[in-house]
Nucleic acid binder design. Sequence first.
RNA 1: UGGGGAGUCGUCCAGUGGCAGGACGGCAGACUCUGGAUCUGCUUACAGGGGUUCGAAUCCUCUCUCCCCAGCCA
Length: 563
Amino acid sequence: MSTPETPYPSDFIRELIREDLKNRKFDSRVHTRFPPEPNGYLHIGHAKSICLNFGIAEEFKGLCNLRFDDTNPAKEEVEYVKSIKEDVKWLGFGWDNREYYASDYFEKLYGYAVDLIKKEKAYVCDLSADEIREYRGTLTEPGRESPYRSRSVEENIELFEKMRKGELPDGSRTLRAKIDMKSGNINMRDPVIYRIMRADHHRTGDKWRIYPMYDFAHCFSDSIEKITHSICTLEFEDHRPLYDWFLEQLNVYHPQQIEFARLNLSHTVLSKRKLIQLVQEKHVSGWDDPRMPTISGLRRRGYTPESIRNFCERIGVAKRDSTVDMALLEFCIREDLNKHTQRVMAVLRPLKVVIVNYPENQAEELDAVNNPEDPGMGTRKVPFSRVLYIEKDDFREDPPKGFFRLSPGKEVRLRYAYYITCTGVVKDKNTGEVTELQCTYDPATRGGDSPDGRKVRSTIHWVSASHAIEAEVRLYDHFFTRPVPGGESNDFKTDMNPKSLESLKSCFVEPCLANAKSGDRFQFERMGYFCVDPDSSDKGLVFNRTVTLRDTWARIEKAQKKN
RNA sequence: UGGGGAGUCGUCCAGUGGCAGGACGGCAGACUCUGGAUCUGCUUACAGGGGUUCGAAUCCUCUCUCCCCAGCCA
């Protein structure tokens, strides 16, 4: 439903569809499809396409099919089919019973090929792969016609049948469209439409020994499904004449192909070839490594489907190549998580604090707000006692200019607890490292407010040492250091960030997290948004940092270091 | 050098003959029991040259730059 608050986005594709609707083209229907090849996991670039295709169907009260483009058994696997379905669903889209496979159409497609042969628009060619390449010509020189181009219809049909039955070896023959070897568009120089590939298919088993090529399978699949607008990426723009040619030759239902620019995201790679390389060469733990731009990686990282959909809306749809800044994706997830996640205190790099004037063996419970953005999320109790942990970074023995946190003689507020003042610093005799702080607290400031109205510059988070739960926390940074990996070296792997994962083993979190389940999301106050990783077990919780909070102090400090 | 596309703030997207706008980023400030969130302000762009027009990002023209195509991958 379109409302003033959430207008549907406008872009050249939607404009075109509105125009078609106005002209009653396609009987005023809108029917799109999302056509992944099951040869890898879906990534954020696919999310753009999914949101576009399913989003348009929803907006124009049409339908969107999920269709697996499974015409190459050498690369495709059921594992990928499974993950793709899961990811599309998780993103929030459904296809009812319209789950289709190009392989379901193999018989029909074969028939279309035979029809083409009968119309003398296709022929069986004996040229080898190398010879075909040679005959194709180059970008600037026309190609030459295959010597097998003028075989009789009967011979072609007979040979094509033999190909189908597996009577001919792989690569020995192809079925080619008879178009124009002199075309400036290389796709039109008698493209191969069927190849012999005596490989088993994940759905059709050993039934087929020949498999159709993309250009042939795709347009007819769209046609069979009565797709109205076949939306694909820019690199298929010069395949459109071929798409149109096939459908025109056989005079069948003819959808309209529309091309848009694929997504590029800074500091990552979105090509299946590169992603599969990262997985196979074990630069990441798998397709769902939280540093991967895959849907499953983002999910494990703690991204919400809402934030990804919102991102896809914000980046827009156009025809020019572009690289979206990762900062926008991060903005989208912060925006969502800020509104919806529970706040909790967690100390990632613990520094022991002893409140010297707080009685030993005493403990009390203090009230904490679960989400200041949403009072409906209520409050919780946080235990306080004599020995606490605070963040190492929240103490400086020699505070730089503008550092408001704890330092010797200075007073800060412990969130929801008391004002404390640092009275002593204990150091390791050998290394000089600060190992413990001695502080005094002001009992009158219980809950965090001072009756005398005195102010503190800073509020820091903390946990009670004896109550806290120890946990592992994994901090992630960009997987690539440069905005465009390989942009300078031409090898994307040289730009991998050696510090993209930092695992902190002894962090302390509030006891209220004891029952947190895999996938649960929290804001660790002042640190960022985190979610429970599936690696968590009864041995201990593991958290992934989804994204940091905006950190003004970090930026000030960075600027100070530069000067 | 064949064919197909594309050039608007740092980034992404609008604007289709009438004051170039939004978002992200950045910078500055207000507020704050998260140096969070929120709010306010600022910043910067029509690839270039000619032309048409009262008026051009928009129309015409020439030029330049970038992307894609020579898989029996999709």
